[in-house]
Simulated assay, not measured.
Amino acid sequence: MHNHSRFRMAKGAELLGRRVDSLEMQVSIPLDDEGFLGRQCPECSLIFRMNAEEYKALPEDLTLWCVYCGHHTGHSEFLTVQQRNRLMRAVGDLGIQMVGQGLERAFGRLPRGNSRSSSVSITYESQPFYPRPLPGISEEPLARVRTCPGCSVQYAVFGEHRYCPVCGRLPATSVAFDALEAEKARLDALEALPHEAKALLREQGVFTRNWVDTMENVVGVVEALASSHFRTAVPNAEDLLRGKGNIFQRLDDTADLFVAAGYADLRIALGVATWQRLTENWATRHLFTHNDGVVDEKYLTKVPTSSARIGQRLVVTDEMCRRTLNDTRALCEALVALAP
């Protein structure tokens, strides 16, 4: 039997006692400066962080969700690589000492002194063990803390996400507004770059590509929100949507669909000017998605006030993107207000 009081453990590792035929050990996991704990998905390997106090208060048999891919399993499976390395160092230190104690007991039972009848001589000399400090935890710091609208748990992500780590799939409203914030942050990040870096990226077309991506992405944000909201609010939604294709990519068709289901007209809620700008934005997105931004007759039909001519390529700007984000936010708010 091992005497656990004889084991030397590094700071942060503590032997709690014996449980049946094993030793119970506790290894501390350092938190970041904000008091958050890293979690790493065993499926997609991406890291997110959770408020440690809230995490500690959760049930021991908690099923944790990956905020990115939605994989869910026991929370103990979400150790990060650095946390696992720290734990394995402590386990390794304990194992070395347990083996050492076992050898001491075994050699302590061997006969002492020289024996002429023995053809094998075994010598064992034990050495004191001094554990090295456990590896620290140095993971990516927080950028922004999210709060789940359902369970109120606080967590931080480092990429696009769709799930709360505790209660699973996030509401479509939360996903939509978070996506719009991410688009704005992307615009701000490029503008904040040093002049030399900005000049190089502009020359390579990175700014233009980023602006075009924003114009395309907001359509996807609205499509997902409108689809989810309509299906939740309208009992016979599937019957009304049958055979209509990607109707939520089309602004006027989306507005007509809600009106037909008995809800207010989005066009009236937003006003003529905002709706017209949104119509132009959606037409711009369609042009870049399907015609590399080159103006065609279909675009001019949608945007009759445009000064562009057929064959020209539209130019998207940072100002256009920011106005589009503001108008899209207003559209999302109007969608949510239709059927709270």
Rank of each mutant, 00 (worst) to 15 (best):
R285W: 03
Y155A: 07
R132D: 13
P30R: 01
L270T: 04
H72M: 09
E14M: 12
A255F: 11
A156N: 06
T173F: 05
L180H: 10
E297Y: 02
N281T: 15
G17I: 02
E54C: 02
V166P: 00
G168C: 09
M215V: 15
V221M: 05
A182Y: 10
D256Y: 07
R39Q: 11
V20W: 12
A156W: 03
H4F: 15
L200W: 11
A156V: 13
L278R: 05
I137G: 00
V234N: 09
F36Q: 02
E183F: 10
V91L: 12
V20M: 11
A192S: 15
V259C: 10
F177A: 08
R84N: 14
N51M: 03
E77A: 15
P165Q: 08
L134V: 05
W211I: 00
A156F: 08
V315S: 08
Q40W: 00
H75P: 00
A182H: 09
Q276T: 14
Q97V: 06
V315W: 01
R242V: 09
G150L: 12
R250Y: 13
V303Q: 01
G70R: 07
Y155T: 04
F78P: 01
S76Y: 10
R242D: 11
D33M: 08
H4E: 12
I96G: 02
K56T: 09
A337M: 06
T301V: 13
T232Q: 15
R242A: 14
N246I: 11
S22V: 05
N291H: 08
G38R: 01
P340A: 09
T328P: 04
R144F: 14
A226T: 02
V219S: 05
A260Q: 14
L87S: 01
V316S: 00
V218S: 06
Q97G: 06
F248M: 06
S152A: 14
P194C: 04
D296Y: 00
Q276Y: 03
L110K: 13
L110I: 11
Y299G: 10
I47W: 00
I310D: 02
S117T: 11
N217D: 12
Y124T: 02
R39N: 02
V27I: 15
R162D: 11
L94D: 00
R146Y: 12
L241F: 08
Q26D: 09
L278D: 02
T147L: 13
V221D: 05
R186G: 09
G92W: 06
G113N: 09
L300G: 04
G220D: 07
E60C: 03
H286K: 08
R144S: 14
S306A: 06
P131R: 02
T301Q: 12
A176E: 08
Q97L: 04
G220Y: 10
R231Q: 13
L300P: 08
R186T: 06
E196G: 01
D32H: 03
